[in-house]
């Protein structure tokens, strides 16, 4: 079985091709980089529309496949930015209708988890998914990926990016903050907000900006910002790990590239005697391959959607999706859920 997947939820238009053996035959991605400021949804959508055809052709070329050989078209219908989602959905619907092959709805967050499991060869991990749009700690239980902790307002990556933009660091801000943080050593007190299992980063962002205005050293603020935000995620991760009893931590999403965060997560894993893996950056960021691979899993379990019902779902929650491909292997586990 050969599935072509289209990722189009925010800044990246991606196209991946995967087969049922779990081989990724192509992963071509084109990122919209704003000339100034953050992602403008309409501008991003314009970028995606202009590159869609060439990205899809490049992916087919890279896989050495003809489009007639594709058995189904998967697309990320959400969660994400409406204008962007519409571009990807339109492309996938058109392909599905024209080649008369099933259209497969994929949840962007589920796709991140599935590609992470595939790449790291870990069956049942606690997943820590941290990017510009999402901050979710999740584990499989009772038929769904349950959310054991998430942000109450902005995502961690969003907090870092917005701060970077404010202080004049180039896009993308995360890696620049990471570099500057290495030179900082004075910890500045910043709001550490954990409410039960959830986190809040908006106050942290406001305070970091205020400290910058007050003339604190940028290196020290970057250092403190990272330490505070990452410690919050780590605390919630550790609690979820104890609560669920999973035997591995998997780090994914754009922020997974951060070395400091990896070291911190690794330390938790070591303390609890579990495995730690971070997803390779290529597959940790938004990409088409993850949609294609999740499409394979979905189609194997007959998860398809008629074109006239394939509405985009900008607020599609991770824990609203049934995961039939894991139903048999993991019986209902009351303890862990």
């Amino acid at each position: 079985m050969l599935i072509l997947g289209i990722e189009c939820t925010a800044h990246t238009f991606g196209c991946g091709i995967a087969n049922s053996k779990g081989e990724i035959l192509a992963n071509v991605n084109s990122e919209y980089i704003p000339t100034s400021g953050g992602i403008h949804p309409r501008e991003a959508a314009r970028h995606h529309a202009s590159v869609a055809a060439s990205v899809i052709c490049d992916a087919l070329k890279a896989a050495g496949k003809n489009i007639e050989e594709i058995d189904g078209f998967a697309v990320s219908l959400g969660p994400g930015l409406g204008p962007c989602l519409r571009v990807g959905a339109t492309a996938a619907r058109a392909l599905s209708l024209y080649y008369n092959k099933p259209l497969i709805p994929v949840n962007h967050c589920v796709a991140h988890i599935e590609i992470a499991r595939l790449m790291c060869k870990i069956d049942d991990p606690l997943v820590v998914y941290i990017s510009g749009g999402n901050t979710i700690i999740s584990a499989f239980s009772d038929g769904k990926y349950r959310v054991f902790g998430e942000t109450l307002d902005i995502a961690l990556g969003n907090c870092l990016d917005t701060f970077a933009r404010y202080v004049g660091l180039p896009h993308p801000g995360g890696p620049h903050i990471e570099k500057l943080a290495l030179k900082g050593s004075n910890y500045i007190n910043l709001p550490y907000v954990v409410k039960g299992q959830d986190m809040s980063f908006s106050g942290l962002l406001t305070m970091a900006i205020r400290k910058f205005k007050d003339g604190a050293m940028l290196e020290d603020i970057c250092f403190s910002l990272q330490e505070t935000a990452f410690s919050m995620v780590c605390e919630v991760t550790e609690r979820a790990l104890v609560h669920t009893g999973k035997d591995a931590i998997l780090l994914t999403g754009g922020v997974a590239a951060n070395r400091r965060l990896r070291v911190m997560m690794e330390s938790i894993a070591k303390d609890h005697g579990v495995v730690f893996k971070a997803v390779p950056v290529e597959y940790a960021r938004d990409n088409g391959a993850m949609i294609a691979w999740t499409g394979v899993l979905s189609l194997l379990h007959n998860v398809t959607i008629p074109v006239d019902e394939s509405f985009i779902r900008p607020r599609w929650r991770l824990d609203a999706v049934d995961i039939p491909w894991r139903m048999n292997k993991h019986e209902v586990n009351k303890e862990g859920c």
């Binding site: 410690s231 330390s267 070591k270 303390d271």
Partner: peptide, 13 residues
């Protein structure tokens, strides 16, 4: 004490 966080934050919390 948590090894993952820096000492000043760890002690404070």
């Amino acid at each position: 004490s948590k090894n993952y966080r820096i000492q000043s934050l760890d002690n404070f919390l």
